[in-house]
Amino acid sequence: MRLKTLLILAAVAVAYLLGARAGRERYEQITEAVTSFWNAPDVKKARKKAKAQAQKARKRLS
């Protein structure tokens, strides 16, 4: 019984380690995609335009 429990715990530990490694790689892929999107020229233009519009609206409200 003790050997069976030890084998199950070892299998769980290995599965956790392999899953954590795969999760980190996927996280890196997602952050790279988001960063490239955020720094795209069209997105930068849209952010700049939205910021200018927000400042304009804030001035009108003051």
Rank of each mutant, 00 (worst) to 15 (best):
K56S: 12
I8V: 05
A52M: 04
K45E: 05
V34R: 10
Y16W: 13
Y16K: 13
Q55Y: 03
R24L: 10
N39F: 03
A40S: 14
E28C: 01
R21V: 15
K45H: 00
L18M: 11
A50I: 02
K44G: 04
A13L: 14
T35G: 09
R21P: 05
T31H: 15
A52V: 00
I8A: 07
N39W: 02
I8C: 02
Y27G: 06
V12I: 15
E28F: 00
A57D: 09
V43P: 03
Q55W: 02
L6E: 15
A13P: 04
A15L: 14
T5F: 04
K49T: 12
K48Q: 13
R47F: 07
A13S: 12
Q53G: 04
Q55P: 00
A57Q: 09
R24Y: 05
F37W: 08
T35L: 12
L9I: 05
L7M: 14
L61A: 11
R2N: 09
R21N: 15
A54C: 05
A54Y: 04
K56G: 06
L3C: 04
R58M: 08
F37V: 11
R47N: 09
D42S: 07
L9S: 09
A33W: 04
A54P: 00
L6F: 11
L6S: 14
E32C: 03
R60Q: 13
R60H: 07
S36F: 07
L9N: 08
R2M: 11
A13C: 12
I30P: 01
Y16T: 15
T31I: 15
R47I: 06
E28H: 00
K45W: 00
N39Y: 04
L6A: 15
A46G: 02
F37G: 01
V12P: 01
G19R: 01
R47K: 10
E32Y: 01
L17P: 11
L17I: 07
A20G: 06
K49V: 11
N39L: 10
L61T: 01
I30V: 14
A11Q: 06
K45Q: 03
M1P: 08
A22P: 03
K49A: 14
W38I: 08
V12K: 11
T31N: 13
A54I: 06
R60K: 14
A50H: 05
R58Y: 03
V34N: 07
